[in-house]
Computed example of a mutant assay.
Amino acid sequence: MFSIYETRSDREKLLNNLLEQDPTLALIVAFIDFEWTVRRTILALGKSSTKVIRARYAGENPETGQKDCNRRAVCSLDGFNELWNQEVASGSARKFYDFFNNAVKLRNVPGFNKDLAAASGKKNRNTADYLKIVYERFRNTLIHGSRTTVKPDKARFAFHFVTACSRALCDYAEEQGKSIYGKKIVRIKPRQ
């Protein structure tokens, strides 16, 4: 469905067309795009070789390539957080959740309003809190089948929020001189 050879605007056009047809399906695909974008950003900006990062992502021992019973494959926000903080966050680079708090402003996300904020049970949540809530309430429940649909207004807000997070990651990689689109990301030697 996605290709490294498309652009961010091509991807967003595809996602927005899907949003018009089926907001719940568009939200699921937006989560797929988000996870793809996080992974590609970590590969592009990480300090280890891409072979090591891919092994860690898969829950393998980077030296042997074998499954490591002490490692889990990265398949959650906490897993992305851990891998990002190991590979990307250093020096001036922000930790994973801090990155979203700084890069994505909720007031700029279409569909965000105080009523939705109040419905989440706590006022004054930050972007990372919303990312965790949206990921758990929508992504996990839809993917694992405990929910089959989302009300269109909530699906649209979550969709716009998740795509804003993906866009922020893409923009950040480009600010660092790296593109997550256009070619396979390969780094044989670790960064110094």
Rank of each mutant, 00 (worst) to 15 (best):
D33E: 14
S48Q: 05
R71L: 15
D68Q: 08
F31W: 13
T37M: 04
A89I: 01
F99R: 09
A128N: 08
T127N: 05
Q86F: 04
Y130E: 14
A55W: 01
A44I: 05
R56C: 07
K95C: 02
N102M: 11
T37D: 09
V88R: 01
L83D: 00
N108R: 05
R107P: 05
A93G: 05
G121H: 06
N85C: 03
L131M: 15
F96P: 10
V29H: 10
P62G: 02
A118H: 06
S90D: 13
L27M: 07
T64W: 00
W84Y: 00
G65F: 06
E63L: 15
F96N: 11
N85T: 00
L116R: 13
S90L: 08
S92Y: 09
S120N: 06
S120P: 00
L131E: 10
R94V: 04
D22W: 14
K67V: 11
R56V: 07
I28V: 15
E35P: 08
R40P: 04
K123D: 03
D33G: 11
R71D: 12
L45A: 03
A89E: 00
A55I: 01
G46K: 01
T37Y: 04
L27Q: 03
F96Y: 14
A44T: 08
T64R: 06
R40L: 12
N124M: 06
L45G: 05
E87F: 04
E63G: 13
A30G: 09
G111C: 00
A58Q: 14
D68H: 07
A26G: 14
V88A: 06
K132W: 14
V29I: 15
R40C: 02
C75D: 11
F112C: 01
L45Q: 02
R39C: 07
L116E: 08
A89C: 03
A73R: 08
E35G: 04
Q66W: 12
V38Y: 13
F31A: 11
N113L: 04
T37I: 07
G59A: 09
D78K: 10
V88S: 04
R56L: 15
N108V: 01
E82P: 01
D115N: 13
V29Q: 14
N101G: 09
S92C: 06
Q86P: 04
N70E: 09
V29S: 12
T64M: 06
W36G: 10
F100E: 13
Q86Y: 07
N124S: 11
A30C: 10
R54C: 09
